[in-house]
């Protein structure tokens, strides 16, 4: 397996040398790489009456965060879905083109997975009244009859993470790292701070100012460590650099959006995971009944759309479940407000 990978790697290296050298000679490159064909060709199963769905997302499908949470949720749906994916479309106009393209193709349900796509959707949705658009994160449907909206009450899971963080912190100082203060990251951070501070911890927050500067993110984590913060959390797909630092320093990390345990199997304590399938099922049920949109849904701790997943490999994981259950119950019955 390893040698096979190495061989393919060398072939790729060789291939790109040839290509960029701009001197023809393409035969070697193509034949070696043919084996990579399997993945992409699994479309075309609509004879079984599967629901055709498409997702347009700003980041990569495997980002261990926002986009991955939606892809996994669609895959977790009870019904037979034929899913097409256009990911990494962070330029809004490209995303708009993709959304429109799917609609023209006759895809039945299109997920526009990014708040920033809303303005484009307001133009596109009325042109395709038979198509259901699912858009988020947003708290309203912009009054469009064929748009469902979804929103995570990220402050709730943030609060639970904050409570856990205050419990595992010895210094009482907790660092929060983000790229830019925007989107549902803000709700998560506010909830986290509320939870941690209610349990006696101090929360320090820093935004690096860049979504893609992983090095800056890592150094922000280092800065927190130097200042005596001994637990870290962060939001967005760019936190991978920061998780690397906490992993190396052997300090606890709290994840959000998707289960981030794989980034640091011994250090990730818990992740707030988005289970969109809870609300997707409701939307699709309405659609089956002829209602194409018009409702906004929230995933939260009460409806099971937000789940705090404790990393079983974290030392002491067993003791945390009780705290989680207690806090979740208190948030659900309203005796704790999370400040979102």
């Amino acid at each position: 397996m390893n040698t096979k990978h190495l061989k393919r790697m060398l072939a790729m290296l060789f291939a790109f040398t040839l290509m960029a050298a701009a001197c023809g000679g393409s035969d070697d490159a193509s034949s070696e790489a043919d084996e990579a064909t399997e993945e992409s060709s699994e479309t075309g199963g609509d004879e079984s009456g599967a629901l055709s769905m498409a997702i347009v997302a700003p980041s990569a499908s495997e980002d261990l965060a926002f986009t991955q949470s939606m892809i996994e949720s669609i895959e977790a749906l009870e019904r037979d879905v034929e899913l097409q994916v256009t990911d990494g479309t962070f330029v809004v106009e490209d995303a708009a083109a993709a959304i429109r393209g799917y609609a023209e193709e006759g895809v039945e349900v299109i997920v526009a997975h990014g708040t920033q796509f809303g303005a484009s959707l307001a133009e596109i949705a009325p042109e395709f009244p038979e198509t259901t658009f699912i858009w988020g994160t947003s708290t309203d449907t912009q009054g469009l009859p064929n748009v469902f909206a979804y929103y995570p009450a990220a402050d709730q899971g943030g609060y639970v993470n904050g409570v856990l963080a205050a419990g595992v912190s010895e210094s009482g100082s907790i660092g929060v790292i983000g790229p830019v203060e925007a989107g549902d990251a803000v709700a998560y951070v506010n909830g986290f701070a509320a939870g941690a501070e209610a349990n006696g911890a101090t929360v320090n927050i820093a935004y690096t100012g860049s979504f893609s500067d992983v090095a800056l993110m890592a150094e922000a984590a280092q800065a927190f460590l130097a200042n005596g913060n001994d637990v870290l959390t962060g939001s967005s797909q760019a936190v991978v650099g920061a998780v690397g630092v906490s992993r190396e320093a052997g300090i606890p990390w709290f994840g959000t959006q998707a289960n981030q345990s794989s980034l640091d199997p011994a250090g990730v304590v818990a992740s707030q995971v988005y289970h969109w399938e809870v609300v997707l099922e409701e939307m699709l049920a309405l659609r089956d009944g002829g209602t194409l949109g018009g409702e906004a849904y929230e995933i939260n701790l009460a409806n099971g759309g937000l789940v705090i997943e404790i990393n079983p490999d974290y030392p002491g994981a067993a003791d945390l479940q009780a705290t989680v259950d207690e806090t979740v119950a208190a948030i659900v019955d309203g005796s704790i407000t999370t400040g979102g």
Binding site: F90, V92, D94, Q116, A119, S120, A122
Partner: peptide, 18 residues
């Protein structure tokens, strides 16, 4: 000329300029 009739960003230069 944007569909949304407004300026918006994802926090990066390329996110606005393409």
């Amino acid at each position: 000329g944007s569909e949304g009739q407004r300026m918006q960003t994802d926090g990066s230069l390329a996110g606005f300029t393409g």
